[in-house]
């Protein structure tokens, strides 16, 4: 058997364009996931606020308990039955963001709960409201503890984004499949596609490591 990468090189501009789409989708989903994760993570801190806690917990349970692919299809193929026809790209970003947000919320909650209770007490004893104490004292400390697990989430998100190719989004995966459909060089194309994902995930984890180091300088 011989390897022939010629069709891959011929299709490289499309693959790179697809990689850019993958980055865009992932970045937008990451943003959504961070906002959602923060809100849901905080909502799940206090079980006594029943309604908020219940809604947030239901969201986490449902999203973590069902396949991402099913969630994406629900958005893309399911919602149109109610006359809600979202653009494919939006479905992809929403689906990935909502999915990742449920995991991020657990990261957020864990990090906040790992901050010693005395920090909140000290902030409140100075007259800060709960919200001010969270913003000034708890979250800045919790954020540093969130970074390593958030790195994992980011990597998972990049890889999971390959599923949006099934929603007709022209990401790197779909561009690869397009090349295969004309060249039948599956092994070569998927190897290069894998390499592109590998570069992306490594770049992301490298960036996060730099951020981690920056944040820990001079602080104990």
């Amino acid at each position: 058997m011989t390897l022939n990468f010629d069709p891959v090189w011929a299709g490289l501009p499309e693959l790179l364009k697809g990689a850019a789409v993958t980055i865009e989708v992932t970045a937008a989903a990451l943003l959504l996931s961070a906002v959602l994760g923060l809100a849901v993570g905080i909502a799940r801190l206090n079980p006594r606020r029943r309604v908020i806690y219940g809604l947030a917990s239901g969201y986490v349970a449902f999203i973590r308990g069902t396949p991402l692919l099913v969630q994406l299809f629900l958005l893309f193929f399911g919602l149109p039955q109610f006359g809600i026809l979202l653009p494919a790209l939006l479905c992809g970003v929403l689906g990935l963001g909502i999915y990742s947000g449920s995991y991020v919320s657990e990261v957020v909650r864990g990090a906040i709960q790992s901050i010693e209770g005395g920090q909140m007490e000290a902030a409140r004893s100075l007259g800060m409201s709960y919200r001010q104490a969270m913003r000034e004292v708890i979250l800045p400390q919790a954020f540093r503890r969130m970074l390593p697990p958030l790195g994992n989430e980011t990597i998972a998100l990049i890889k999971n984004s390959a599923l949006v190719s099934l929603l007709t989004i022209d990401d790197v995966m779909r561009e690869g499949q397009r090349i295969i459909s004309t060249s039948f060089r599956a092994l070569e194309v998927y190897l290069v596609v894998a390499l592109i994902y590998f570069v992306l995930t490594n770049a992301a984890s490298h960036l996060l490591r730099i951020a981690e180091r920056r944040l820990s300088v001079g602080r104990g």
């Binding site: 010693e116 920090q119 007490e121 000290a122 000034e136 602080r219």
Partner: peptide, 8 residues
């Protein structure tokens, strides 16, 4: 007792 200074 445990100071509870803000470490950041």
């Amino acid at each position: 007792q445990s100071f509870n200074l803000f470490p950041h």
